[in-house]
Each structure stands twice: as structure tokens, then as C-alpha cells.
């Protein structure tokens, strides 16, 4: 993306009592993308988010949002931000509407219409006049998203936003966030431990562990990745009744330009074979197997999931 990054974390370090919680973290969030923030428990996700919204001070470094430093120009920088930090804790003794009114009053220029609009977006129309203490966790989460969107922020920070949402709610939120990023150019920064969810939601994901940024991966979007996704061979898994025979059949029939037989892994116990294949080759291989009298029960991509990648880069360690 050519646009200026909306958020820059510059060598952010946080020490509490001599212990380094966040260590020299630098990150840039491009405008209009959904950016995932992954890390095991205790890796410093929430601490980073707290520093981004000014709830915690940095020991070193700076965070610039929309061109203003959160350190020296807080009131200006935070105007760009809508956020939920950890649980969406609202005033339980107030109604949903009063809660939204409360936050609306704190930013100039939010009309009653905008409040109604946000309520409709969050799907809270029917319960908005009820006290928040009667809300379920999912409804509180929706109200939390509603308050974060009130002032049309250019950066939306959501800490575990799918917590407590039902599958329909998660899907709705995911679609909404993607639309927000695509249509309004809002940058969405989501932390989550639901890796499969992040995979569906995010354009890029940063992985942190023990307060250090260890990887930033593109999960979708971006021209190079798109093109590569079509042309590059992907590891495919064929579920068959006789894996060994199937493998032999493929090795005989398919050779590369140099005459080297195709690489096929056999997974007898799973009743499957694994091989790299382009999209167009898959149908051909299937036809070959069927002609050879092999029963094919299923074909699917065996590309590494984000979960596997995540465990790979974090070494499977949980709390450090």
C-alpha cells in the first residue's frame, strides 16, 4: 500500500519494576487494512494496546497515530482512535443508550442520528433502552463496538472482539470490519487468540512473543500475494482407499520436465497422499486416480493454517 501508515509504533519499550514487558517493538499499520495482533497469553498484547490508547506510559519509544504523538499530543492523537480494551465494561446501571450518550458527549459533533445509526449497526435496536446489567456478554460486546465507532475513528482497536459472540455474531462482526476497512478506509487493529478467526478477518498479522515482535505476515490482499496464490503450487491432500497404489500411479504418470518423478508423500494411517500441485493439476490428478481404479474420498488444500504457522514461530511456548 502506498498510503501513509496511520499508526507507527517506534521502538516502544515498557518496563515495569525492572522487568521488560515490551521490548523495542516497532510496527506500522497501513491505512484501510485489518491488522491482526497475535501472541500467547502474557506476551504483551494488551500492554501494547494500553500504550497505544494512552492508558499506560511507554518507558521508551513513541507511538504516532494520524501524525500526532500519543505521548506529547494525546488529545489530538486519541481523536483518531476508537477502542475496546479487554472486556467491554460499560456502566451497568445505565441503559445502553445512556452509555452511548455518555461517550458521544465526550467528542464534539456527534449527533443523535449518529448514535441511532451506530445502534442499528450493532443490532441493538430492541434492547438499547434496557439497563446494561441485563445484557448478555455478546450484547455488551456489541455495545462496546458501537461506542468505539461513534466518532468514526480512522483507527479501530479491538481487544478480543469475538469474545462472547455467537457464530452469527462473529461472522457479522468480521464482515462489518472488512467492509469498514475496504469502504471507509478504517484501519482495524484486532488482537485475538482465535487464530482461525484471525485468518478469516485479517489482511496482515503481527505475532509477538515475550514482548518482542517476531513476525509480520500477509494473510491476504496485496498484489504479489494474490498473483502468487494462483500460480504457486499448493500442497494438496487426496484421501484415497489405497494410498500406496495411488502414489505409485502418480509417480509413474507425472514427471517434471527433467523426467524426475513427482514427489508424493504417503500417509497410510490417514489413508491419504500429499503432493504439491497447481490448481489446474488437481483435476488432472483426480482423473488419473479415478482411471486407475482408485477411490477418491476427498481432496483438500493442506496449506499450513495460521495456527500451525503461529505455533511454528512461537515454538509452541505459551507463557514466558
Amino acid at each position: 500500500m502506498l498510503s501513509q501508515p496511520i499508526v507507527q509504533l517506534k521502538q516502544v519499550t515498557k518496563r515495569i519494576g525492572g522487568k521488560t514487558i515490551i521490548d523495542n517493538l516497532s510496527l506500522e499499520l497501513p491505512q484501510g487494512e485489518v491488522f491482526g495482533f497475535l501472541g500467547p497469553n502474557g506476551s504483551g498484547k494488551t500492554t501494547t494496546i494500553r500504550m497505544m490508547v494512552g492508558l499506560m506510559r511507554m518507558s521508551e519509544g513513541d507511538i504516532v497515530i494520524g501524525g500526532s504523538s500519543i505521548r506529547t499530543d494525546y488529545e489530538k492523537a486519541i481523536r483518531h482512535v476508537g477502542a475496546i480494551v479487554e472486556n467491554p465494561e460499560m456502566y451497568k446501571y445505565l441503559t445502553g443508550y445512556q452509555n452511548l450518550l455518555h461517550y458521544a458527549r465526550m467528542v464534539p459533533g456527534i449527533s443523535r442520528n449518529r448514535i441511532d445509526e451506530v445502534i442499528r449497526l450493532a443490532g441493538l435496536d430492541k434492547r438499547i433502552e434496557d439497563k446494561v446489567k441485563t445484557y448478555s456478554l455478546g450484547m455488551r460486546q456489541r455495545l462496546g463496538v458501537a461506542q468505539a465507532l461513534l466518532h468514526k475513528p480512522s483507527l479501530l482497536i479491538l481487544d478480543e472482539p469475538t469474545n462472547g459472540l455467537d457464530p452469527a455474531g462473529i461472522r457479522e462482526l468480521r464482515d462489518y470490519l472488512r467492509r469498514l476497512a475496504a469502504e471507509e478506509g478504517t484501519t482495524v487493529f484486532v488482537s485475538s487468540h482465535l487464530l482461525s478467526e484471525m485468518e478469516l478477518m485479517c489482511d496482515q498479522a503481527a505475532i509477538i512473543q515475550a514482548g518482542r515482535l517476531i513476525d509480520v505476515r500477509r494473510l491476504r490482499g496485496g498484489e504479489e500475494a494474490d498473483a502468487a496464490g494462483i500460480r504457486m503450487p499448493v500442497q494438496m491432500l487426496f484421501e484415497v482407499d489405497r494410498p500406496d497404489e495411488a502414489a505409485a500411479l502418480i509417480r509413474d504418470a507425472i514427471r517434471t520436465a527433467d523426467g524426475v518423478p513427482a514427489q508424493v508423500q504417503v500417509r497410510s494411517e490417514a489413508g491419504a497422499i500429499l503432493l504439491d500441485a497447481r490448481r489446474a493439476d488437481v483435476a488432472e490428478i483426480n482423473a488419473l486416480l479415478v482411471r486407475g481404479g482408485i477411490l477418491v474420498y476427498g481432496i483438500r488444500s493442506a496449506g499450513k493454517t495460521l495456527e500451525e504457522q503461529f505455533l511454528e514461530v512461537t515454538g509452541g511456548e505459551s507463557v514466558v
Binding site: 490508547v53 494512552g54 492508558l55 494525546y74 488529545e75 489530538k76 486519541i78 481523536r79 482512535v81 477502542a83 475496546i84 480494551v85 479487554e86 472486556n87 467491554p88 465494561e89 460499560m90 456502566y91 451497568k92 461517550y103 465526550m106 467528542v107 462496546g144 461506542q147
Partner: peptide, 14 residues
């Protein structure tokens, strides 16, 4: 105690 301080402070007010 209610945790609402977080959402209260992340507004354009010192």
C-alpha cells in the same frame, strides 16, 4: 472497580 475507567479515559480529554 467497574473497569469503565478504560473507556472513559480514551477520549480526547486529558
Amino acid at each position: 472497580t467497574g473497569g469503565t475507567i478504560k473507556l472513559l479515559l480514551i477520549r480526547p480529554w486529558t
